[in-house]
C-alpha cells in the first residue's frame, strides 16, 4: 500500500543559549516514517521527546530545519503558494489535546463545522446545514440539530472532543493527526473516543496518534513508533513491539506503565530524561540509563536497523548493524 504521507530524515533544531554561547536544541532528529490509508500509527514518547514537534511540523505549524515531507509522493516542505498550502491543509487535519481550548468559546458548534466546509469549498451555503448534521451524526453527537446550536461551554469534555473530531473530518481529509486526544478526558469517556477512532479507519483515513499512553496506543493503533530525545528508537507493529520490545527504553516504558493485572515488581530506574538534548554528543542518548550499554554505545550513535522483518530499532546491542547487513547479505562497511 502506498503511503499517503511520508517523512524522511525530518529534523528540527531550536536555537537556545545566549549570544555568547549559542547552542541548538535538537528537538527532532532524523525521523523517517510513513502513514498509510486506513491505518492508525501511534507516535509514542514522554514529554520533550519530540513527538508533538513532529506533529506540528506535519501540520505546517512549525517549519522543519531539514528533511522532506512527502504528501502523495511529492515533497511539500517547500511549498509557499496559498493554493498548494490550502490543498495540503484540506487533506491533513488535526485533533488537539485540550477539548476546551481547541474550540472557540465565542462560536457555536455549527459555526465551527461550517468553516472548513466553506474554506475548502466542500459544499455551498445551502447544503452546509445538512452536512453539519451528518458530520455530527458520524461522531455520535445526536440529536445533531440540538448539539449544533450549542456553545463549547455547554458541552461536556467528551462531546467537545467529538466536535473537534467532526471538524477535522469536515474537509474530507486523507490524514488526521491526533495529539493526545484523550489525555484530558475522564477515564470512562476515553474508550468512547478511542472506539470512534477505530471506526473511522473505515473511511480510509491515515491516522497519526500521538500519545504517551502505551495502553491506549495498543488499543487503537496498528503500528507504533517510540521516540526518545528527538529520535525514533523503535518501530513496528504495535502488538509485536509491546510483547517483545527490542530497545531498552521501550522495555523501560512498558515496565513503568501501571497495569492493574500485574503485581508490583521492583524495576530499576536510572536517572535521566526523555527530553531532547542541547548539542548532543555522539553516542546513544539512552546510554546513561541503559542496563545493556557497551563501549560502542558511548562512541557511536546507533542507527535504525531492521533487526527482523518489520521490526526496526536503534540499538547497538539488540539491533546491531551486522544483523541487517547479514539480512541483506552485504559486506560490512
Amino acid at each position: 500500500m502506498t503511503p499517503i504521507l511520508e517523512v524522511r530524515a525530518l529534523s528540527k533544531q531550536f536555537r537556545s543559549g545566549g549570544l555568547l554561547h549559542p547552542s541548538r536544541l535538537h528537538a527532532v532528529d532524523d525521523v523517517t516514517f510513513a502513514l498509510r490509508p486506513g491505518r492508525i500509527t501511534a507516535l509514542a514518547g514522554e514529554s520533550g521527546s519530540g513527538k508533538s514537534t513532529v506533529a506540528r511540523m506535519l501540520l505546517r505549524l512549525i517549519a522543519p530545519s531539514s528533511g522532506e515531507v512527502l504528501f502523495e509522493g511529492r515533497n511539500v516542505a517547500g511549498d509557499r503558494r496559498r493554493r498548494d498550502v490550502l490543498r495540503y491543509r484540506k487533506h491533513v487535519q488535526m485533533i488537539f489535546q485540550d477539548p476546551f481550548g481547541s474550540l472557540n468559546p465565542a462560536k457555536t458548534v455549527r459555526a465551527h463545522l461550517e468553516r472548513p466546509l466553506r474554506i475548502h469549498g466542500i459544499v455551498g451555503r445551502r447544503d452546509a446545514r445538512a452536512s453539519v448534521d451528518t458530520l455530527l451524526e458520524t461522531v455520535g453527537l445526536v440529536p445533531a440539530a440540538t448539539v449544533a446550536d450549542k456553545y463549547p461551554h455547554e458541552l461536556s469534555g467528551g462531546q467537545r472532543q467529538r466536535v473537534a473530531i467532526a471538524r477535522a473530518l469536515a474537509a474530507n481529509p486523507k490524514v488526521v493527526i491526533a495529539d493526545e486526544p484523550i489525555s484530558m478526558l475522564d477515564v470512562s469517556i476515553r474508550i468512547g473516543i478511542l472506539n470512534l477512532m477505530r471506526d473511522l479507519k473505515e473511511l480510509e483515513i491515515a491516522f497519526l496518534y500521538v500519545t504517551h499512553d502505551l495502553a491506549s496506543a495498543r488499543y487503537v493503533a496498528d503500528d507504533i513508533l517510540v521516540m526518545y530525545a528527538g529520535q525514533i528508537v523503535e518501530q513496528g507493529p504495535v502488538d509485536e513491539v509491546l510483547a517483545s520490545p527490542l530497545h531498552p527504553y521501550t522495555r523501560l516504558l512498558i515496565a513503568s506503565v501501571p497495569d492493574g493485572e500485574r503485581t508490583l515488581e521492583p524495576i530499576e530506574i536510572r536517572k535521566g530524561t526523555a527530553a531532547a538534548a542541547v548539542d548532543p554528543a555522539p553516542g546513544c542518548r539512552f546510554v546513561d540509563r541503559c542496563p545493556l550499554a557497551i563501549d560502542v554505545c558511548r562512541r557511536e550513535t546507533p542507527e535504525l536497523v531492521e533487526a527482523e522483518p518489520g521490526r526496526i530499532a536503534r540499538c547497538h546491542v539488540t539491533a546491531p548493524r551486522q544483523r541487517e547487513d547479514h539480512l541483506h547479505a552485504q559486506p560490512a562497511a
Binding site: 501540520l59 505549524l61 490550502l86 488537539f96 481550548g101 472548513p116 475548502h120 471538524r167
Partner: peptide, 13 residues
C-alpha cells in the same frame, strides 16, 4: 497560542 487559533490555521483560515 490557544489551540482554537491553531486549529483555525490548520483548517486553512
Amino acid at each position: 497560542n490557544r489551540d482554537f487559533v491553531m486549529a483555525a490555521k490548520v483548517a486553512g483560515e
